[in-house]
């Protein structure tokens, strides 16, 4: 849930999503769910000349499984907090693994 939790804080920020088919889409993150499906608004394809068929598209829903990278806006990431969150997540996983 860490990634879900993290991406939720990026809602309404501009992110660049790189898909596994090499298309990069920049847009405002509108929503994200537990599968990391992503909804982008106001999108723009990074290499528009290469993917002209996307130039008319205004918003997209991206299935989480086809995302390769999400380029984050650095200024909106709280690194120490993210580190702590990661520690907590790891601790949770460890306890869960022990229980299971």
């Amino acid at each position: 849930m860490l990634f879900f939790s993290f991406f939720k804080t990026l809602i309404d920020h501009e992110v660049t999503v790189e898909l596994k088919n090499d298309i990069q889409i920049r847009g405002v993150l509108k929503s994200v769910d537990q599968f990391l499906n992503i909804k982008l608004d106001n999108i723009q394809v990074v290499e528009e000349l290469k993917y002209p068929h996307l130039s008319a598209v205004k918003n997209v829903f991206i299935r989480g499984s086809v995302v390769r990278y999400v380029h984050l806006p650095q200024e909106s990431v709280d690194i120490p907090l993210l580190e702590d969150a990661t520690r907590r997540e790891a601790a949770n996983q460890a306890t869960k693994a022990k229980q299971g």
């Binding site: 849930m1 860490l2 939790s5 537990q34 709280d78 907090l81 969150a85 601790a91 949770n92």
Partner: peptide, 28 residues
């Protein structure tokens, strides 16, 4: 199953699950 026990919301457990978002939005 998807959201966890609603009774747990606001407790440490849910904080652990959604720590970053909750604290971040608190700070931001």
């Amino acid at each position: 199953a998807a959201t966890g026990n609603p009774n747990e919301h606001g407790t440490d457990e849910s904080l652990a699950e959604d720590f970053y978002y909750q604290v971040h939005s608190q700070i931001q």
